[in-house]
């Protein structure tokens, strides 16, 4: 019995467009353990949301997916469609950035719950409703609101409904894609505490996709930094925050404005176009330390400390 819940190796996701394939995820490998929270951090368009969706297999039709994704030892790519559907929502759940648009406006909250539960288990409607009531109550939403429609709830409540709905099947892995980005800071903190509790109580594994390093510092065990479709650094949160190895991680940490910021720092240049990314190290056009080798040779994925990896030719200089 292994404790590895999810294992990705050499994962590639290409969106086929008229301009050519957009290499949103381009060769990513990692493992996730039971009860662990992994933060995936990156800027807009780095492919972090695509990574989340690819784990569930909810990418748009015509997308190319290569590499291996193993969930509890099962190769997700080789599963028949119906098997995969049964895993979605039951074993692996996904919550999204914008809770405003993720619930069907024409159905009540009760309808959403009953549909979800009965898509996975052969239970009566009454039983499904009972379970919905319990899950909602645990999120502080009273039973009297079961028959309400999504537009009658605030953003924070909708996100709690989404969490309750993914919780009701007791999944082993929860993927949260910017779950608090559209929420105000107090509600954001409330939702983060809920996610934290879930992991503690249910031993759920959590992939938290975000652009906010503050959130990662507060709730994650490990952190993966993503740039232009690749992981550039992966390690324990304390390690990465204390001694970031990759120059992009360093720059990202420095540019985050927080309550104790002493100066403003920004990264020159723009993130690359993923149809035609720069060769070798993709960060080299914006990197202050870039040398000739960064333009010609792809940096290796090196373990600098136990469990702390990075892909930079000069990684050891920053230790």
């Amino acid at each position: 019995m292994t404790d590895v819940v999810l294992e990705a190796s050499g994962l590639r996701v290409y969106y086929n467009t008229r301009r050519g394939p957009v290499k949103a995820v381009d060769g990513i490998s990692f493992e996730m353990n039971r009860g662990e929270t992994l933060g995936v951090v990156g800027e807009t368009g780095c492919g972090k949301s695509t990574l989340g969706k690819s784990i569930l297999g909810v990418l748009p039709p015509g997308t190319t997916v290569e590499g291996e994704l193993r969930f509890l030892g099962k190769d997700l790519a080789s599963l028949p469609r119906e098997e995969l559907r049964k895993i979605r929502g039951k074993e692996i759940a996904l919550i999204f950035q914008d809770p405003m648009t993720r619930l069907d406006p024409l159905f009540t909250i009760e309808d959403h719950f009953v549909e979800t539960i009965r898509a996975h288990e052969d239970v009566s409607k009454t039983e499904a409703i009972e379970r919905a009531v319990k899950a909602l109550a645990s999120m502080g939403i009273p039973e009297s609101r079961l028959k309400h429609y999504p537009h009658e709830f605030s953003g924070g409540m909708r996100q709690r409904i989404m969490i309750a709905m993914s919780l009701v099947m007791n999944p082993k892995l929860l993927i949260a894609d910017e779950p608090t980005t559209s929420l105000d800071v107090i509600v954001e903190a409330q939702i983060l505490e809920i996610l934290e509790d879930l992991r503690r109580v249910y031993k759920m594994s959590l992939v938290l996709i975000t652009h906010n390093l503050g959130i990662v510092a507060e709730v994650c065990d490990r952190l993966a930094v993503m740039y232009a479709g690749k992981f550039v650094e992966l390690g324990g949160v304390r390690d990465v925050f204390r001694t970031p190895v990759h120059p992009y991680t360093q720059a990202l940490l420095a540019s985050t404005i927080h309550l104790e910021s002493k100066e403003l720092f920004s990264i020159d240049g723009l993130p690359p176009d993923l149809v035609d990314p720069p060769p070798a190290c993709r960060f080299h056009p914006r990197c202050t330390y870039a040398q000739e080798i960064c333009r010609t040779e792809e940096p290796a994925w090196v373990e600098y400390r136990p469990g702390h990896f990075a892909a930079c030719h000069f990684g050891k200089d920053f230790l």
Binding site: R88, A93, F96, T101, D104, H120
Partner: peptide
Amino acid sequence: SADFTEAARARGIP
């Protein structure tokens, strides 16, 4: 292709 249909797929709705 709406957001809520994607979310429904993610919940494993047939």
